[in-house]
Design a protein around this nucleic acid. Structure first.
Lengths: 139, 139
DNA sequence: TAAATTAGTTAGCCTAGGTAACTATATACC
DNA sequence: GGTATATAGTTACCTAGGCTAACTAATTTA
């Protein structure tokens, strides 16, 4: 078995337990991990149109419509007029912004426990590897 | 944003494009990436019971039943009697074994392209980080 | 100004997971 | 030994979270 295959095997193996743990932590906010990913994007990089969110997350527009409508219902985000009459921008509400901070703090222990015994340097290398793969794949 | 959160964000971001690419490559074998993961397990580590497969993949037994029945239909695996009358072991057929080799070769270029510009050493570190997380989470 | 493109929506489908409840077998406990 | 509990796999049905196709409205291009 090659190092490459090994890596992707391990990558895959981690997915379900990780997502399950995150979902357990997010339950009290009525969120799933994919909805949380949208909130994080809006918090870290400001408002985005539906198409921008779709591209960022590598999903299709109808899926974004559903996520966003759910998040609007929960009062975490709102849509505002975009650059022209077609476009709508999604942004966090004041409540949503508070919540993101709270959730980040709430998730922190999980992330730290998951990465226990791994040095900062190793985490950074692993992060760079993942980023590089994204760039290679989406090219 | 902490290095931990950054890492998990990047991890998540890679998932969909990666799985989609793998699925495209597996289409000609009528497989999805999760079914392929089962075949790989059987090839790399020999025959497993349904429960063992469920534990390894962090999924529930009914999901395994479905996977395996699909793979039996395709003629890639077969079930044999286990250690007692309840247990059934799943193993590759001769055809399945050939196929695993073929698929591994078929996927190799994709993995190499995805990891282009990443050193063996970095890949190994990233793999260890992922394995460590699995161990930490499942504890 | 007609044709093509783009943003978002709607409807309906599929995968890949889940839970609950079941059968058959095996083990543990009085 | 017989009853209670546990375990392996199955069945039926539910859900999250994707997808495509076809649509409307607005915009850009030819």
């Amino acid at each position: 078995m090659t190092v490459e295959q090994d890596f992707f095997n391990q990558y895959r193996l981690m997915y379900r337990p990780f997502i399950n743990q995150v979902n357990v932590q997010l339950e009290k906010y009525q969120l799933y991990s994919s909805q949380w990913a949208v909130l994080r994007l809006l918090n870290d990089k400001g408002r985005h149109s539906f198409v921008e969110i779709a591209n960022y997350m590598s999903i299709e527009k109808p899926s974004v419509t559903r996520f966003v409508h759910k998040l609007v219902e929960l009062g975490y985000v709102e849509t505002v007029a975009g650059r022209d009459k077609r476009e709508k921008l999604v942004q966090l509400t004041a409540y949503g912004e508070e919540l993101v901070l709270e959730i980040k703090a709430h998730l922190k222990p999980l992330f730290e426990q998951a990465l226990a015994g791994v040095s900062k340097q190793e985490i950074e290398i692993a992060t760079q590897v993942l980023a590089k793969i994204c760039a290679n794949i989406n090219r």
